[in-house]
Structure formats: structure tokens, C-alpha cells
Design a protein around this nucleic acid. Structure first.
Length: 675
DNA sequence: GAGTTTGAAACT
DNA sequence: CAGTTTCAAACTC
């Protein structure tokens, strides 16, 4: 069915490009395309497709939304671009320029061609441009049609993507040394630097696998979308996504073995990066995201990872990253941060580019990867090791969280010295089943362990007071008793984060932040807020409450609660927005962790007590949602936990008459219903 | 590289 | 839920 449809569709596209868009737009069309990515791509329409690319964000196809879709798409692009760049390097500048533009634009076509082969082909094709490969003519046509997908191009193209496209074919020969082309060349070169080693079949495979499984759908949809709109003259934004599908699917078909589990696998990224150096190329900006493999199920890990990376890499290792970048000629592509993740370690060499961007762009990284990275950067063990996580399991068969590989969502690979390892693609079923079991016990077992607050967004939303020093914290906290949180035995320390309320450590001396310090900061922040902003807040709240009463917010249907809410002083901080944020975002799960932190930060008062309860992962997620934190029960309880004095002190101050806060909490529950 | 220490994960 | 055991990483020598 799918194949037929896909085949038919292309034809239709060819015949009537404009109508295509309609079909493509339809989800059904996308789905079909996904099933059979090959054909549609080749159709001329494909070129048009890119032009239309408007999708900045893929539809919420996946159960767990990945922020990375674009990235991936770009990533794929990048590959093309990289290849292209490589090819260009070979060819003359003028030709190259053309090719670059064409390539970029025609990435889709190339990909289509690649379907039979791997992405590697692209370069060849491109390089052959001068030679006028067989499809050259078609390519040109398609390319011309294709909109400039690459971001760099986008600049040049900007408004004239359409023009370019049309012109290019004609002017290809004529226009060789256009500044744009040169720019492209430069970009390509930079990309090459960054991604130079796109070989890891494994890593790539991982991506492919991931994509193939769930994401593939998404991409397919994207592709279609892109294809659809020939109109989209200049939507360069992220049309590229299209390519990935095919590439991925193709590649995947091709052969690579998987290292990454279907879930998400942070480690995949590295490989992906390596193999797909491409992604990085594309955009420094989005690239980061790009590179990040959108995990299907484990995206959480990715997030968490990111968090760590950012912290770690930025704060501690940042210098090292710089070094790496420097080594690479400096043109490091930003992004990549995620790339850096676990596996990047393996090939730290090739991935120099990753680092710099890494953390910054993406907040979260895989913890393990980060760790390894750290190690590598730190000069520790790792460098030699190849980056990826390597386990040494002997009894767990790499099917328990003891196994770092398994815990990271990646398959064990050669470097691992595990015994009787079942964490291999061959035993995929077993791995998945085991994973499910573990998740059944602890849904967050594979979720990132470190939550990063850095996003001031949430924090900011609330009052300033909410801000806390620590940007990231270990979700569950550590339980160190002898290491004083000064060794890697401590997960907090290992993750490069300070200890928090959640920690049950003894004699904490965590260099990244002591538990007690964390508590103090929280308390202080609360107090400050209370003193400084309390009055203001109360005033605002009152005003808001009045306003709310008059004009209920559509977003939060809490008519009955409204009054209560309004009264709450916390609302100002917490504001419904956060809740909305969580609720609204499909990725609530992702953010939850952040929310936890932020909430804690925001809620401060309640948080302290609440956080204690949260220590457990599940609760965290649930709790993390503002709702939870706000949940009357929890809060009511929390004050009690805090102790009579505190509720009185903190709440008392604020509340002074505002006990309403507690009531307001109930209001949130109303929000929960959304869930 | 072997042995020890440590704390998370798993089990009871 | 608390206590114990198992496990593998981190660490030391």
C-alpha cells in the first residue's frame, strides 16, 4: 500500500507540483511517504518540497516529543553539505560554488539517489558535477527547484531562494565565484572540519535506527511537507529535515548495526555526530539540537545528558572544549554539544567541534557521556578509551542499570569488556523487555539523573527571588557516606553538579556545591523574596487576582479556583504559566525534571518540604509538574514538614493573611485534569 | 592488573 | 519501606 501510494504520489507530484503540496500536507501522505521514502524523494517535486519547508518543528508524532527533529534533519543536511563540501574541495571553486548551492538545494535529490547508497555518495555525485554525471541534468533541475535548505545558504538566499533556484540551473555555468558560493564553500569547509569523520557506522546506525523506528515517520512527514510547497520560496529554516529520512532509512537499510537502543540513546549521538558530521555543519545554532538525536523514548536521557554536559562542559570542562576546538582549526561548529555526548568520547578526536557548542546550545546531555567526556577532557582515563561508554559487567549481562551502557540506552560495543552481554542488537528483544521491566518499576530509571535549572526561563517567569545558584542538581540526589561527595562515587559530583536537598549524603563537601550551601541559598532566596518582593508581589497578586477575576485566563480553566489562586502570593511566582508550560508541552516529561528544580526554586517555600518527598524519581516527575508541587496535599504537608516555624515564617510572612496560598494549590489540580 | 572501596541498583 | 545483598565503577596500590 505504502509503496504504491508513494510511487503514485511522486508521479502526481511531477505532473502537478502545486497539487502535491496538498497531498503532502495531509498526514496520510506523510505517513505513506515514510513507509516508502525512496520514490518521493527523487521526484522533481522533491525539489519543490524543500522550498516549502517551513517546518520548524516536526509534528508531535512521537509519543515523546523530541526537540531535536530539526536538528536531525539538519544533521542529515549537514552530511550532505559536508559531503558536498568535500566534493567541492576537490572541484574548482566556481563549480563548487554551484554545486554547493545546488547540493544544498538538491540535498533531497541527492538523498534520493543515496537511497540506494549511503550518504557518501553525495559527495561523489557532487564532485562529479564537473564531470556531469548521468543524473546531473536532473539534479540540476531538481536542485534549481529546491529551495536553499542550508542555513548558511539561507543567509545568502534569504529572500531570493526562489530566484536562486531558478537561476542556478541556468547560471550555474555562468555564476561560479559568486560570493554566496564562496560563503557556502567556507561553510562547507567549516563543516568538514567539524564533522570530518562521519564514518562510525555504529553511531550513524544508531541514528538511523532511531529515526527509522519512530522518527522516520516524522521525517517522512517532514519530507512531504517540504516537498509540498514549492512555493515556500525562502523557507530555509529547516526544510532539510526531509533529507534525513531518506538518508536514514537508506542508511539504515544499508547496513549499520545498531549500537543505540531504540529508545533514545544518548550515546548514539556521538556516533551520529561522527558519522553524520553533517549535522554539525549545518548549523551551529540548531546544530546542537540537530545533532542531538531525538530519542524516542529516552529523550529524557538526552535532556538530562544535555544538562550535565552543559554544566560540566561549560563550567568545568569548558576550557578543555575550547582546546579541542582550537585543535581543530577553530572553526568549530557550535552546536554539537550534544554530539559530544557519550560516544563522542570514543572519537573525541573527530569530534572536536562538538565540544564548544555542546553545552551551551543544549542544556542537557547524557550524564554518562558527560562523565566520559569530562574524563577525556580532564585528561583522565578516557581519551584512550574511545569515548563511548564501556562497561565491564560480568554478572548483570548488561541488562541492568549497573551497566552503564544499558543505563545510557546504548548497546554494548567491542570496547566493552562485559561478559555474557545481552545488551546487543542481537538481543534487542531481550533488551527492550528488560528495559520495560525496569521502567515499569521506575519509569524514570532511564531518565536523566541530572536536572538542569539553568533555564532561567522558568525561573525567570517566577520572581527573581526564585533563582537559585545551582543550575543543575541530581534528581535523586546522592547517598554518599564516605566519599564526602568528592569522588566519582558520588553521582552528583560525577555529574558535575552540586548536592541538593534531595541528597542524603553525609559530610558533603561536593566541590560543585555543598548540600548545606544549597539549602542556605534556597532559604536565603526565600527570605529575600519574602522581604524584598513580598510586598510587591502581594500587590501584584492582588491586582492580578482582581484582573483574573474580571478576566479569567483562557489558558487556565480554573474558574472556581481562580479566586483562590489570585489570593495566593505564590501564584505570582509560580504563575499558571509554568503549569501551562508543562502541561502544554508534549514533552512535559522532559521538562519535568527542570520543572522540579525550577519549581523547587520557584516554590521555594513549599519546595523545601516538597523536595524531600520528591526524592523518588517517579514522584519527581509527577511532582515536578507545578501541579504536583502545588497540589494541596503536598503543600499542606510540606508546610507541616517544614515545621511550624517555617510555615509561619515563610508562609506566615507572605501569608500573613494569605493562607489562601494553600487554597490556591487546589486550583492547580484543576489544571491537572489536562493531563 | 589486581585488589579495595564505594554507593547505586536490586532484592528481600 | 527499610535493610540487605549484589553489582560494577571508581579508586588505590
Amino acid at each position: 500500500m505504502d509503496n504504491e501510494n508513494s510511487q503514485k504520489e511522486p508521479a502526481s507530484k511531477i505532473e502537478t507540483p502545486t497539487p502535491k503540496s496538498k497531498f503532502e500536507d495531509s498526514p496520510v501522505f506523510n505517513f505513506i511517504n515514510n513507509l516508502s521514502p525512496f520514490e518521493p524523494v527523487k521526484s522533481f517535486s522533491s525539489a519543490q518540497t524543500f522550498s516549502s519547508l517551513n517546518f520548524t518543528s516536526p509534528p508531535p508524532v512521537f509519543a515523546s516529543p523530541h526537540p531535536n527533529f530539526h536538528r536531525e534533519s539538519r544533521f542529515f543536511r549537514c552530511q550532505h553539505s559536508v559531503d558536498r563540501s568535500k566534493a567541492l574541495g576537490d572541484g574548482s571553486v566556481s563549480k563548487e560554488d554551484r554545486e554547493v548551492d545546488l547540493n544544498k538545494d538538491a540535498t533531497l535529490e541527492d538523498e534520493e539517489e543515496e537511497d540506494t547508497e549511503t550518504s557518501c555518495e553525495l559527495p561523489q555525485i557532487l564532485s562529479s558535477d564537473g564531470q556531469s554525471p548521468p543524473h546531473h541534468g536532473e539534479d540540476i533541475v531538481t536542485q534549481t527547484l529546491l529551495p536553499p535548505s542550508d542555513p548558511p545558504l539561507g543567509e545568502d538566499n534569504n529572500g531570493s531562494s526562489m530566484n536562486r533556484l531558478q537561476k542556478i540551473p541556468d547560471s550555474q555555468e555562468e555564476e561560479n565565484g559568486t560570493p554566496d558560493s564562496r560563503r557556502l564553500m567556507a561553510d562547507a569547509a567549516a563543516e568538514l572540519l567539524v564533522f570530518r569523520s562521519p564514518n562510525d557506522s555504529e553511531a550513524f546506525t544508531c541514528l538511523v535506527d532511531k529515526i527509522s523506528s519512530s522518527e522516520r515517520r516524522f521525517f517522512a512527514g517532514v519530507k512531504h511537507h517540504h516537498i509540498i510547497p514549492a512555493n515556500g520560496s525562502s523557507n530555509d529554516n529547516e526544510p532539510l529535515a526531509v533529507v534525513p529520512n531518506q538518508l536514514v532509512s537508506n542508511v539504515h537499510r544499508g547496513s549499520m548495526r545498531r549500537r543505540c537502543l531504540d529508545f533514545e540513546v544518548p550515546g548514539k549521538r556521538k556516533k551520529d555526530d561522527d558519522q553524520q558530521t553533517v549535522c554539525d555543519n549545518n548549523k551551529p545554532e540548531s546544530s546542537s539540537s540537530k545533532c542531538v538525536v531525538p530519542g524516542i523514548g529516552l529523550h529524557l536521557n538526552a535532556i538530562a545528558m544535555a544538562s550535565r554536559n552543559t554544566k560540566i562542559s561549560i563550567t568545568h570542562e569548558y576550557s578543555s572544549s575550547e582546546e579541542v576546538q582550537n585543535t581543530f582549526s577553530g572553526s568549530i561548529t557550535p552546536v554539537h554539544s550534544q554530539d559530544t555526548v557519550p560516544e563522542t568520547l570514543d572519537q573525541a578526536e573527530s569530534q572536536p567541534g562538538e565540544e564548544a557548542p555542546k553545552a551551551l546550545v543544549f542544556e542537557e546531555l547524557i550524564p554518562d557521556s558527560l562523565q566520559k567526556k569530562k574524563q577525556v577532557l580532564e585528561g583522565g582515563e578516557g581519551e584512550g578509551e574511545s569515548s563511548c561508554k564501556r562497561c565491564n559487567c560480568k554478572k548483570s549481562k548488561c541488562l541492568k542499570l549497573y551497566c552503564e551502557c544499558f543505563a545510557a540506552g546504548v548497546y554494548c560495543i567491542e570496547p566493552c569488556s562485559c561478559v555474557d552481554c545481552f545488551n546487543k542488537p542481537i538481543h534487542e528483544d531481550t533488551v527492550l523487555a528488560t528495559r520495560k521491566q525496569i521502567e515499569s518499576r521506575n519509569p524514570l530509571a532511564f531518565a536523566p539523573k541530572v536536572i538542569r535549572n539553568s533555564d532561567s526561563s522558568i525561573m525567570d517567569t517566577s520572581d527573581d527571588a526564585s533563582k537559585t545558584p545551582a543550575s543543575a542538581r541530581h534528581k535523586r540526589g546522592c547517598n554518599c557516606k564516605k566519599s564526602n561527595c568528592l569522588k566519582k562515587y558520588c553521582e552528583c559530583y560525577q555529574s558535575g553538579v552540586g548536592c541538593s536537598i534531595n541528597c542524603r549524603c553525609e559530610g558533603c563537601k561536593n566541590a560543585f556545591g555543598r548540600k548545606d550551601a544549597y539549602l542556605h541559598t534556597i532559604m536565603e532566596s526565600k527570605q529575600e523574596d519574602d522581604h524584598e518582593t513580598y510586598e510587591k508581589r502581594t500587590e501584584k497578586i492582588q491586582q492580578n487576582s482582581k484582573e483574573v477575576e474580571q478576566n479569567p485566563q483562557p489558558s487556565t480553566p480554573l474558574p472556581p479556583y481562580r479566586n483562590l489562586v489570585v489570593h495566593q502570593p505564590f501564584l505570582s511566582r509560580n504563575k499558571l504559566p509554568p503549569t501551562q508550560f508543562f502541561l502544554g508541552a508534549g514533552s512535559s516529561s522532559f521538562r519535568k525534571p527542570d520543572c522540579d528544580v525550577t519549581q523547587s526554586m520557584n516554590e521555594k517555600k513549599s519546595l523545601e518540604t516538597v523536595t524531600e518527598d520528591k526524592t523518588e524519581i517517579m514522584p519527581d516527575i509527577l511532582n515536578t509538574s507545578p501541579i504536583k508541587a502545588n497540589s494541596p496535599n503536598s503543600k499542606r504537608v510540606s508546610p507541616a514538614h517544614i515545621g511550624p516555624s517555617e510555615p509561619g515564617s515563610i508562609l506566615g510572612k507572605r501569608s500573613n493573611g494569605r493562607k489562601l496560598i494553600l487554597r490556591s494549590i487546589p486550583a492547580f489540580p484543576s489544571l491537572n485534569p489536562n493531563q
